[in-house]
Design a protein around this nucleic acid. Sequence first.
DNA 1: ATCTCTTCTGCAACTCCATTGCGTTTGATA
DNA 2: TATCAAACGCAATGGAGTTGCAGAAGAGAT
Lengths: 143, 143
Amino acid sequence: MSAKRKVSTVAGVDLTATLRAAGLRRTAPRVAVLRRLAELNIPVSHAELVDALERDGVDRVTVWRSLMDFTEVGLVTRADLGDHVWRFSLVRQGEAVHARKHPHLLCIDCNTVVCRPDVKVTLPPGQGEIEVQLKGLCGRCEH
Amino acid sequence: MSAKRKVSTVAGVDLTATLRAAGLRRTAPRVAVLRRLAELNIPVSHAELVDALERDGVDRVTVWRSLMDFTEVGLVTRADLGDHVWRFSLVRQGEAVHARKHPHLLCIDCNTVVCRPDVKVTLPPGQGEIEVQLKGLCGRCEH
DNA sequence: ATCTCTTCTGCAACTCCATTGCGTTTGATA
DNA sequence: TATCAAACGCAATGGAGTTGCAGAAGAGAT
């Protein structure tokens, strides 16, 4: 019996199937990037991903190219939250883009992104789609 | 009689007085940057300002530092409109307060900023101050 | 299981924007 | 107009994002 492959379903995302469905090969770096995105489930910067993955020998360029490939096929979206840093987030199958389901807060102190579904935004009737971005202190930095 | 100094009031902004009030010296580069910002009255990138001003012998670093100084004292705001380019816009007198009274929409098409007092944002009780930024299409670009 | 073809990776080098260091110039007050 | 800190211009540095290329690895065919 061969060694078992690491579990490939993370936070409801089947990593292998997702890659194959997108027409991309299942490679170690891509699985690692995709896993991380699925685990965190918030917009993540390239630098943050590199910090987490380069200990596994994944090159920064490879991480970047994976993100570009994923973006190109619509697996992830790329956004700038106003601080001049690209952040990438996974687009889950059948789900609205995560960023449009609820607002996200960019902490002006520690630069992390926090989901804030408790912040309600009321749009006037007939209003087209609008993205809401919050800036302030996150729970940890507020104290 | 000494040579007349170039008119210092542009689009309702008294350049000299504005600089002095902010505690900054009135220098040729700063006046040039400020004038340009007042004339255009839309978010402008550093590169665009350099293109316009370096023919007058203004250094690109000086333009940058002017913008940073202006930002620091609240004369201008710096924002990334989603295209990974810093854009600077003049904050007109009284607008600093204005900006916190209601959300503003950044048009992802024409890059202008529009007041949107009709968009209500409900923060949970005890929430500290949070800045709300909206991104979408303005009334003109929506059609 | 191995072969073969294509994709993908890792490394190095490179570009461009943003930032810093420093010697010189200039504005504002005395 | 003399003084001194603030601001300038120039050069150099830092860091994100890109590109080129030789070698490694995935997937289907044999």
